[in-house]
Amino acid sequence: MASTTLPRSAARSLPRAVPSVRSQASRVATRCLHQNASPITASPLRNRPGVRQWNQRVPMPAISVGRRTMFIQTESTPNPDALKFNPNQRVLPESISSPFLEYLTPRSTLAPPHPSPLAAKLLNIDGVTSVFFGVDYVTVTKDSATPWAHVKPEIFAIINEFMLSGQIIVNTVEDKAGESGQEGTEQDSLAYDENDSEVVGMIKELLETRVRPAIQEDGGDIEFRGFHDGQVLLKLRGACRTCDSSTVTLKNGIESMLMHYIEEVQGVQQVMDQEEEIAMKEFAKFEEKLRQQKGPDAAPSAVGKGSLDTVEG
């Protein structure tokens, strides 16, 4: 019997031309599995497992709700005994024409025309001597013997409570007896007045645009008390009122600028209230006593009645 011999080239192409049975079977099986797949349906209700109610009571952990706080920025001032608190919202009501209010005694916080519950609480803190309200900040001044670490947390807490609760910071009541308990309740002393002379108008403009912003930045303000015989009468408020550097501010700063731009100005004097005048006299006596103890050649202090021209208010 004659055997048929395939050429080598034909033998190599044979597996490619004839697919294997295994590959066909897998394709058929795959196709059949896809065609015969049944959709997934929900099981009958009777075959579902029952749900038993859990009766054990689990004690809920106690949740402590803390008090809300707000961001109050604190700024130091040239006066080491005064701090400026910025609550980032308006402090003085818009109905008050004055740019500031200053409370120097607990009685002033209750007297008309602008009693203040916030100032009353702050002045009730041991060591706090005065409270100053700017348009959007509060300046608190303490005595030199009280450290800030003792009073600053309580000041923060009181201001935070008033701002968050929406309590009235400053009230306005009728002043029937003419008793003004606060400083700065009248009209803004630097406001334009048609009755002012040309020189006074120029002085007010320079104070308003060049001086007041810097003093407000330091937690205080300035009042114009008049212009007489070439002398500009001014009153510093807030942190600048009891600051040792107020002498430099008035003489080297404000006086030099006013004399440079206005030739009619010959000097600047600070108006002193009666309490401040008494304090200055007591300080002068204390300096004189120290000078006698140290000897006649001792240099006088930079702060004192003789270091700044003053007039009684």
Rank of each mutant, 00 (worst) to 15 (best):
P115W: 05
T74V: 14
I158P: 03
P115T: 00
Y137N: 13
S116C: 08
Q89K: 10
D143C: 14
L110M: 14
P80M: 10
L122T: 10
L104Q: 11
K152P: 01
P113G: 06
I125C: 08
P117L: 14
S116D: 12
N124G: 15
F85P: 01
V138K: 01
E94M: 12
P78W: 06
F132G: 00
D126W: 00
R90N: 13
I96H: 14
Y137S: 14
A149S: 14
A111M: 14
F133G: 11
Y103F: 15
L101F: 04
L110N: 11
P115E: 07
Y103H: 13
T141K: 09
A157S: 12
D81I: 07
N88S: 11
L123W: 03
E94N: 13
V91K: 05
T109Q: 01
K142L: 02
T77V: 10
E94F: 12
S76G: 12
S97F: 05
K84L: 15
L101E: 03
A119N: 01
Q73F: 05
Y103N: 11
A119E: 04
L83A: 05
K152A: 15
S116W: 10
Q89F: 00
P93L: 08
T109S: 04
W148F: 15
G134V: 06
L101N: 05
F156S: 10
L83R: 13
D136Q: 09
L123Q: 05
P93G: 08
G134K: 03
Y137L: 08
L118P: 06
F156P: 01
D126K: 03
V91E: 06
P106I: 04
N86Y: 02
D136T: 07
R107I: 09
I96V: 15
L122W: 08
E154S: 15
L104C: 04
